[in-house]
Amino acid sequence: MQLLNLLRANTRKEYLELKRYLPNTLAMMFTFYILFVGMFMGIQFIGDPSAQDVNTQFVIVNYIFWFLAMMVVNDIGFVVMNEAMRGTLEQLCMSPMGLWRIMVSRLLATTTLNFFIIIVLLYLSMLTADQWLNVDLVAIMPILILTLISMFGLGFMVAGISIIVKQIQAFLQILQFILAGLTFVPLSVAPALAYFPFVKGVDLIRDVMINGTTLSQIGWGDFGILAVNAVVYFTLGLAFFLYCERIAMKKGLLSHY
């Protein structure tokens, strides 16, 4: 019950802020849309014309996942940095629920809210490119959920680093490109990336959305990798976050003044 209240409070806060700063939210969506238009034009002009359709579809999926990764992994870094500067991080740390539970609620809340934005962006980009992907929710949802769990793990790592490192901004900016790299590089090019967080998931979703693979066609082995990935990265991420929190409490880093 307490956990539910925690989740509710954090969802409400995220929602209120998104709504109150609607112009900002819209501007951010617009920027992302323009970015897509840029990539789409790029394919039209430089790409191999015979592979154009597949390339475009490929970019749409990658682009949507890049946005998701930014919202889940990168955003929490900025949030922690700002809250440390504002002084609210200390208030969160004093919650008897524990900071990590608040962070999980925040991650769930931002993901849920950004889901609506993602759907808008997805359909907007499909419309712009006139390429219709296979939105097979039955196949997508289980993959997406497992992928999100490993993304949360990565988010926790970024949050942890943001607690103990004061000049984190530059790192977070570079991270945006790393995330782009992880979402854009196909697994066939670098098979070892399957053991990186969320790369395998994006690859499977590409299979579903571009090649029309159905849930039953995806092997248990693939799901196994996804599940192990989710458990390992979430556990590692959380452990690392708790470790960073501990260091911060030893060195007095919870407020960056």
Binding site: M1, Q2, L3, N5, L6, R8, A9, N10, R12, K13, Q91, L92, S95, P96, M97, I102
Partner: peptide, 10 residues
């Protein structure tokens, strides 16, 4: 409301 929620109150 938010801070109450963070302590587990509705």
């Amino acid at each position: 409301d938010y801070f109450a929620g963070n302590r587990g109150f509705s």
